[in-house]
Structure formats: structure tokens, C-alpha cells
Amino acid sequence: MINQATDQAPDLTKAYQIDAIGLVCPLPILRFKKRTQHLPSGTQVEFLSDDPTGRKDLQALCELTGHRIEWIREEGAGVLRYRICLA
């Protein structure tokens, strides 16, 4: 398990889910942008992706938008689950 913000276990409370498993660059990030564009600031989003470049792309998007990656968890089979707080 990878925890971006702290050494504590990730918060698994309810969040808006976006599944981008099976999509390759740039489709995972485009799906994330499309599905979050009308969500309010502070919304918790769980984003699942198995795209090898997805982590770098998502981090770049968050730097540009001000979204915060709270944690990243390895799910197995190359899938990463991200918890993002929207700016």
C-alpha cells in the first residue's frame, strides 16, 4: 500500500468513483476531467486506473488544477486506486 499524505491507513469513506481500468493514455485523464468538471470543490474522488503512465499524468493534472492526491493504493494486477480531493 502506498500512502501519499501520511503513514496512516487510507480513509475508505464513500467517494465519487471513476473507473478507467483498461483505458490507455490519454483516455484515463480525459475521463477523470470530464466526470469531475461539475463536481463541487472538496468532493472526494476514487479513481482506478491500470495505465502505466497514469500516475505521472494524474499528478501533473492535480498540480495544474490544485486537486490533491490524498493517497494511492495498489489493488493488484497493475491497478492503482487514487483518492483525490477536488480543488
Rank of each mutant, 00 (worst) to 15 (best):
M1S: 12
M1K: 12
M1D: 15
M1V: 11
I2C: 09
I2M: 12
I2L: 08
N3C: 11
N3D: 15
N3I: 15
N3K: 10
N3R: 08
Q4K: 14
A5M: 10
T6M: 07
T6P: 01
D7A: 14
D7H: 12
Q8E: 08
A9D: 09
A9E: 10
P10E: 03
P10M: 09
D11V: 07
D11R: 08
L12T: 13
L12P: 07
T13Q: 14
K14R: 08
K14Y: 01
A15P: 04
A15K: 06
Y16M: 03
Y16C: 02
Q17V: 09
D19R: 15
A20Y: 07
A20P: 07
A20C: 08
A20L: 05
I21R: 13
I21T: 12
G22E: 14
L23P: 13
V24K: 14
V24F: 14
C25W: 13
P26I: 11
P26F: 09
L27G: 15
L27M: 14
P28V: 06
L30P: 13
R31H: 13
R31N: 08
F32R: 00
K33Y: 13
R35P: 01
R35W: 05
T36G: 02
Q37Y: 13
Q37R: 11
Q37I: 14
H38Q: 08
L39V: 03
L39I: 02
P40R: 06
S41C: 14
S41A: 07
T43V: 00
Q44T: 00
Q44Y: 04
V45R: 04
F47T: 00
F47Y: 10
L48Y: 12
S49Q: 05
S49K: 03
D50H: 05
D50P: 08
D50F: 06
D50W: 07
D51G: 04
D51A: 05
P52F: 07
P52R: 04
P52L: 05
P52S: 09
T53W: 04
G54R: 02
R55M: 12
R55H: 11
K56M: 13
L58Q: 00
L58S: 02
Q59S: 07
A60Q: 07
A60E: 11
L61V: 03
L61A: 00
L61I: 03
L61R: 01
E63T: 12
L64W: 08
T65P: 01
G66F: 06
H67S: 07
R68P: 04
R68A: 13
R68I: 09
R68D: 12
I69D: 02
E70V: 04
E70K: 10
W71M: 10
W71Q: 05
W71H: 12
W71Y: 14
I72V: 14
I72H: 05
R73A: 15
R73H: 14
E74V: 03
E74T: 04
E75F: 07
E75V: 03
E75Y: 06
E75H: 11
E75D: 03
G76D: 06
G78L: 08
G78M: 15
G78C: 12
V79D: 02
V79R: 05
L80F: 10
R81Y: 09
R81S: 04
R81K: 15
Y82A: 01
Y82R: 04
R83V: 00
I84G: 01
I84Q: 02
I84W: 02
I84C: 02
I84A: 02
C85M: 11
L86P: 03
L86F: 03
L86H: 03
A87Y: 08
A87K: 09
